[in-house]
Write a protein that binds this DNA or RNA. Structure first.
Length: 726
DNA sequence: ATAAAGTGACTTTTT
DNA sequence: GTCACTTTAT
């Protein structure tokens, strides 16, 4: 059978597993995505299951998209109707379809993190609770945790006075969400679970529809997701889950790898298939990874093996601080690329906390090397993007008060705190949302609300109401880009942004990027555009097409692979993070995080720790990560952190420029290939003239003055300069 | 109503 | 050392 060729016996067994519950325990790099895609193709082509009756769930849109493309490939496009997506997107779609059975409208908006915290803050204020003792962020966290555990406000367990306060906020918060016709991330799952639990007709409908359910990254499901799956699989019982408890890294988000055990208990007849053969890494990398993860208790030991050979040992390097760490990594990349051993796109630089990305970025910028940073909130968190999305959301759903509050006075419209308080009061008294009042004010003289405000305020509010009413009247069904452009024009956003600074240009560039995204939704409704933006994950921004190094958190690295991986900041307090020190469970999760990082690598792993790390703006001495002790010395090159004279070294050692085995042969001496006065051409910067060239750290550094871009310092081996004319 | 200046939390990870 | 929110001065 063609579908099965190229699969090992265990993979074949998983692909063709007969109906009934199946648990696939898949080690890193063991081809689980292959198993999932081939199984879907197998179900459709060999068992005649209709795509519409198959549900496949992933955790990121990117994974869903890739899976869809691969199944499409296998079946030459016969996949129409296949239900494939993330938990959140599938639930959002289902809720819009079933809105009639639920206490909100089909055009609900999805509140992001900021919106959620703002709303909690508002509720805390309304309830006259002290926001110093009850910080909105912390309370929101408690509410979110409850929701992930399927605990509703009435069932919120009360042991302390704080619990009682949280319960009150939770109750009011849920009411406020409904008034805004909004759901938060957790609600998307929660409401589906409630629907399936409380309404047998709905449960029956979906349970019958989904003859086969496949779940990726099962170890990262939380209580709600697990319950949901059980309901959806309650009729056919064909639940096929793939996961690896060792790669569970979302405990803090409510994920519980014990769902794997729960699955075995709930489905005692489940078939279990083990995938251990690794097709990604060298044996040295796998051995290091196993040495690290074997220190965790209460786990099923797996023996990872490959036929790729041992490969090279892992490298470890001590550096003075983050700056040196960045420089070292950049130099190492330049060297490996210069030697022709790797391409720029082969490299990934991973870190525990987002804050670490800055010094690494600076190293790349300093060396004039391009790089790619993974992280959606980098873009969607920008003020200008949030502003504009706020406008679109408000047009889509005028009851969304988070968006309204964000945009009503941006740009300045003389609507300040006082006017907002009044507007709120008027809205509450009239039983309307603030947006509803504004839309009524747009009727001008006919509006009964006009007289309730002072003259100035009334004019300002009426003006904004007109804008909003106009957008809704003319563009609610227009392609998102048309609406966006109309908004941009009506509020003259460009001149609002333009304060002459360099940052302003940046911001306007971001607006253009948003326009480009909107353009992709030309033939889809506004709601879909907004929803897809609300549900993008950081991982979705991973772009393999640009041939440049990738910077990303260890969390974002899950599911990816790179030929060369740098794992930075291996210090106690950073990895493992200090927050995990007093909780053994969290410490084990830190270890899994390190394990995930190591197993992303195909060929090489570089580990580094800094003797000093700046947090809060203060540089403090650190200790090497305890995890480093677990990697056997015979597969680890470089400085051994145990029992060394590092305190002396801290003061005496020379700056380290290069990441090399201490005893490796010196790099070949290279000669300059350019000379001053030459005319050259660069792919991005156009024509220029070489001013100077020199050898530094075994790399040729060329100073070029470009006609358009001015003076640039370039690493010759990476810049690919073309000599032109004479 | 707004701009300027001050305060305090924040850094773990993100659908 | 940064962001977001609050207070103060205009």
């Amino acid at each position: 059978m063609e579908l099965l060729s190229g699969l090992n016996p265990q993979q074949q067994q998983a692909v063709t597993a007969v109906s009934g519950p199946t648990l696939v325990l898949a080690g890193p790099g063991s081809g689980k995505t292959r198993v999932l895609t081939h199984r879907i193709a197998y179900l459709i082509s060999h068992l005649g299951i209709k795509p519409y009756n198959i549900l496949a769930v992933t955790f990121t849109n990117k994974a869903a998209k890739e899976m869809g493309a691969r199944v499409d490939d296998l079946l030459s496009g016969e996949t129409r109707g296949l239900q494939l997506g993330t938990f959140h997107s599938i639930c959002a779609r289902l809720l819009r379809r079933e809105a009639e059975r639920l206490p909100f409208d089909a055009n609900f908006v999805i509140f992001d993190d900021d919106d959620q915290v703002s709303l909690v803050r508002q509720v805390i204020k309304d309830l006259d609770i002290d926001d110093k003792s009850y910080r909105p962020q912390a309370v929101q966290g408690s509410i979110s945790r409850a929701k992930n555990e399927l605990i509703l406000p009435d069932d919120y367990p009360i042991q302390t006075y704080r619990d009682e306060v949280v319960q009150r906020v939770y109750l009011r918060y849920q009411q406020a969400l409904l008034q805004n016709n909004a759901l938060d991330f957790d609600d998307l799952l929660l409401w589906v679970a409630i629907l399936l639990e409380d309404q047998p007709a709905a449960r029956d409908k979906y349970a019958r529809q989904f003859e086969h359910i496949l779940v990726d990254e099962f170890q990262d499901t939380n209580t709600v997701q697990y319950r949901l799956l059980k309901h959806l699989a309650s009729f056919h019982r064909n639940l096929f889950v793939v996961g690896d408890a060792d790669q569970s890294i979302y405990r803090w988000r409510g994920a519980d790898y014990r769902n794997v055990q729960r699955f075995e208990e709930d489905f005692p007849d489940a078939a279990t298939i083990l995938l251990e053969q690794n097709y990604r890494s060298t044996q040295n990398i796998l051995n290091a990874a196993m040495a690290v993860i074997d220190q965790n208790h209460f786990r099923v030991r797996k023996e990872l093996f490959t036929d790729r050979g041992d490969g090279v040992p892992l490298s470890m390097q001590e550096v003075f601080n983050a700056r040196e760490e960045g420089g070292l990594i950049v130099n190492t990349i330049a060297r490996l690329v210069g030697r022709g051993e790797h391409e720029p796109g082969d490299f990934a630089i991973m870190y525990r906390t987002n804050a670490q990305s800055r010094s690494l970025e600076e190293a790349f910028i300093h060396a004039n090397l391009p790089y790619k940073l993974v992280g959606a909130q980098r873009f969607y968190g920008r003020r200008e993007i949030k502003d504009l999305l706020g406008y679109l959301r408000l047009v889509y759903n005028p009851n969304d008060e988070a968006s309204l509050a964000r945009v009503i006075n941006v740009p300045r419209r003389k609507i300040g705190g006082k006017t907002m308080t009044d507007l709120r009061t008027v809205a509450v008294n009239a039983g309307l949302s603030m947006g509803g009042v504004l839309l009524d004010l747009a009727r001008g003289e006919k509006s009964e609300f006009l007289g309730t405000f002072g003259k100035g305020a009334a004019a300002s509010l009426e003006g904004f109401g007109h804008l909003l009413a106009g957008w809704r009247a003319h563009h609610i069904d227009s392609p998102p880009l048309i609406l966006l452009d109309q908004v941009l024009a009506d509020i003259d956003y460009q001149s609002y942004l333009d304060d002459g600074s360099e940052e302003a240009t940046d911001r306007w560039d971001n607006v253009q990027e948003l326009r480009r995204l909107a353009a992709e939704y030309a033939d889809r409704p506004l709601g879909e555009f907004l929803e897809s933006i609300a549900l993008v994950s950081d991982q979705d921004t991973v772009d393999q097409s640009a041939n440049v190094p990738t910077l990303l958190t260890l969390h974002a690295a899950k599911g990816l692979e790179f030929p060369v991986v740098f794992i930075t900041g291996l210090e106690d307090g950073t990895l493992p993070h200090s927050r995990s020190f007093d909780d053994p469970e969290e410490m084990e999760e830190e270890r899994r995080l390190f394990y995930v990082g190591i197993t992303r690598a195909k060929d090489r792993v570089y580990l580094s720790y800094a003797l000093n790390r700046t947090t809060f703006g203060y540089s403090e001495p650190t200790e090497p990560s305890r995890f480093l002790d677990d990697i056997p010395e015979n597969i680890l090159d470089g400085h051994n952190p145990l029992g060394t004279t590092r305190y002396v070294e801290r003061h005496q050692r020379q700056r380290q420029d290069e990441w090399e085995r201490p005893n490796s042969p010196a790099a070949a001496v290279i000669q300059p290939t350019y000379r001053a006065g030459q005319n050259v051409r660069h792919a991005a910067w156009g024509n220029g003239m070489v001013l100077n060239t020199k050898i530094e750290d075994g790399e040729e550094i060329v100073d070029v003055f470009f006609e358009e871009a001015g003076l640039k310092k370039l690493v010759a081996s990476l810049a690919r300069l073309e000599v032109v004319g004479k």
